[in-house]
């Protein structure tokens, strides 16, 4: 390679990486007027809510909504979909990665326990923090 080309090939990825880092830092600053502030998903839960996710009493109703932490990527939603569908009594799963909520449809006869649902969520590499009925 020529000297200029060599310098460019070394500079270009460094510039791109620097730009990435700068881009990452930009959002941490104070937003300007009218600028949309990205909000991360923060579930409002109490210690009692989290404790209730480990109870052994079967849930009631036709569906429950699971509030999940760690749901940060599209493939995570597929992972949790797969593990929840294996839980006896679960008939459908809908994952909303925008809100971190997973809607679980339940069969009319057998119902899973919160503990079973929590274990399935952990199998997917995520954490169940609250169950809304």
């Amino acid at each position: 390679m020529t000297g200029n080309t060599d310098r460019f090939m070394k500079f270009a990825p460094m510039a791109l990486t620097g730009a990435l880092l700068l881009g990452g830092c930009q959002g941490s600053g104070t937003p300007g007027a009218g600028e949309k502030v990205p909000e991360g998903v923060v579930h409002q839960v109490t210690p009692e809510d989290t404790a209730a996710t480990h109870t052994q009493t079967p849930v009631t109703g036709d569906e429950v909504v699971l509030l999940v932490n760690g749901l940060g990527c599209p493939q995570c939603s597929t992972n949790i979909n797969k593990t929840l569908e294996r839980v006896p009594g679960v008939t459908s799963v809908h994952v909303d990665i925008g809100s971190g909520k997973v809607t679980v449809g339940l069969g009319s006869k057998r119902k899973p326990t919160p503990h079973q649902l929590s274990e399935a969520v952990v199998d997917a590499g995520l954490t169940l923090v609250k169950i809304e009925r």
């Binding site: 881009g23 930009q26 990205p38």
Partner: peptide
């Protein structure tokens, strides 16, 4: 990159991540 503000992600091509598929996947 500079215009879009901040960002995040998962596993890159040459660097592993501490992530994995769930059992059976």
């Amino acid at each position: 990159v500079l215009c879009v503000g901040r960002a995040v992600g998962q596993e890159a091509m040459y660097t592993a991540a501490a992530t994995m598929p769930p059992p059976g996947s």
